[in-house]
Amino acid sequence: MCFLQQGVILILVAACLAQDGGFNLDCKPDAVTIKWPQKLTQEQVQNPYTFLLGNCIPSSVSEDGALFRVGYNDCLFQRAVFGDKIVFMNLLSYRPDSAVPSVFHIVDCVFDRPALLTPLAAQPGIQGTNEEKPIFSMELMNDNFSGPAPSTTFSVGSTISLRAAVAEQADAPQQIFLNECVMTESSDPYLANETYTIITDEGCLLEGKYGNATFLPREKPSEIRLSLAAFGFADTEEVYLHCKLVSWQAHQLDVDLKACNYRKEKQRWELLDDSSRSDLCSCCDSICQQRTRGLWQNVVVGPLRIQQESRKDSVWKGPKGSAVFWLLTAAVPVVLLIATGALALSYYLCIWRGGRLGYRPSRDLLNKY
């Protein structure tokens, strides 16, 4: 993960340097406007493909330059979440003709993310008497959710099953949502050196788009289930999952009260509770509207121990594994020795000796010396 973060930093630095290139950039939460002033001939105006933003041609082209007005879901924009920042990046290019060098610029729009996991003391949503507070819980479950997980140790790629719930209230049935979740190597998310986003933008399961995770069908509104493929950080085996749980009146879905899965086969977001209203998830590739409503609380699950695959490889365990290991240890040098000998013999026969088969030293030269 540290390499990923360093890569994002380098990209941001390069982007800032590249944006001294003379174009005007206006970043909005849902779209960007780019004006690139260039003196163009009439022939260039009639060929808009000289300008490209990702894979998009300009919205309009005139003798004074090109204008783009596009959303972040279009034109191959790439999204990166880095700490408290959301960055949308793209490549702006100008290729007039073979006689004129092409020009490239990195376009980036950087937005502040809302503060994640506000300390409980600052949570007005759960102030009041005990009767007014919902009772939130989040726990590790076994694969079929029939009981608690037998262990908190997982191998990379195995399934982590999580169940979050809010206490049911007869007079006002509640529905629970996972609005934010991050994975860190620290029990305190503010002290973590590395943070990996699982869920963002008020219920968008980002890990389902770039990794392997999904919200599972609900058994009832007061519960929500999450299946996540285990992954670890490079410098530690212990990780913590920090989540913000929100409850609201049952069946009252909205942009800030949603659970969105990414369907890779369809390449689109889908609302867990009502696929016909998946338009509520359309902001998951940009920035979703933030509201302060509902009752909510932060929870921490962990530590979870994530073991790398190589640590459980059978070649290092047991009598059979040991035999295989020593067999490989002995066989590899022998194979290398045979290969080296074959190469040496081939060189001697084909090049050294082969090049001298017709060679006879001159007697005159021998007599001379």
Rank of each mutant, 00 (worst) to 15 (best):
C109H: 10
H105S: 12
Q78S: 13
C16V: 10
M183Q: 08
Q267T: 03
L345A: 14
T340S: 10
L245Y: 05
D30Y: 04
C243W: 08
A18W: 06
P124Y: 02
W326D: 05
S362T: 03
V32D: 01
T41P: 06
S222I: 00
V87D: 08
F77N: 02
R356C: 02
H242F: 01
V334R: 15
L295V: 08
V45T: 04
N193I: 08
E131I: 03
D313V: 00
L162D: 05
D201R: 09
I11S: 12
P303I: 04
N179M: 00
L327V: 05
G71Q: 03
C16Y: 12
G147V: 09
N73D: 12
D20Y: 09
L216C: 00
A331M: 11
E202F: 03
D256K: 03
D279I: 01
V8P: 05
G294C: 07
C350K: 10
D64W: 10
V315F: 15
G211W: 10
E185Y: 04
R363Y: 12
A149K: 07
C109M: 02
F231N: 10
S346Q: 08
P221S: 03
C2N: 13
V70N: 09
V335P: 02
K266L: 09
V8Q: 04
L337R: 11
D30Q: 07
P48V: 03
F177Q: 02
L12W: 05
Q175A: 15
S275Q: 06
P58N: 01
D108M: 10
V166M: 02
K266W: 04
V334M: 12
F233Q: 06
N261T: 00
P48S: 07
A31T: 06
G318Q: 06
F104Y: 14
H105M: 09
I9Y: 14
Y347S: 05
E265K: 01
D279K: 01
E168Q: 15
S314Y: 12
C2E: 14
R353W: 12
K320A: 14
M141Y: 00
G232C: 14
P29N: 09
G211V: 01
D171P: 05
L241Q: 13
E309Q: 11
W248C: 13
A80W: 13
C243L: 09
M1F: 09
P29W: 05
K266D: 14
D108W: 10
H242G: 03
L357H: 06
T50W: 05
T153W: 11
E132C: 15
L25N: 11
T197K: 00
L116Y: 04
S187W: 10
A172M: 09
Q290D: 01
D64K: 13
N367W: 13
K244H: 09
L257C: 04
S155N: 15
S275P: 07
V255P: 00
I306Q: 03
E185P: 05
T195K: 12
P101F: 02
N298A: 00
I338Q: 13
A250G: 04
D279N: 02
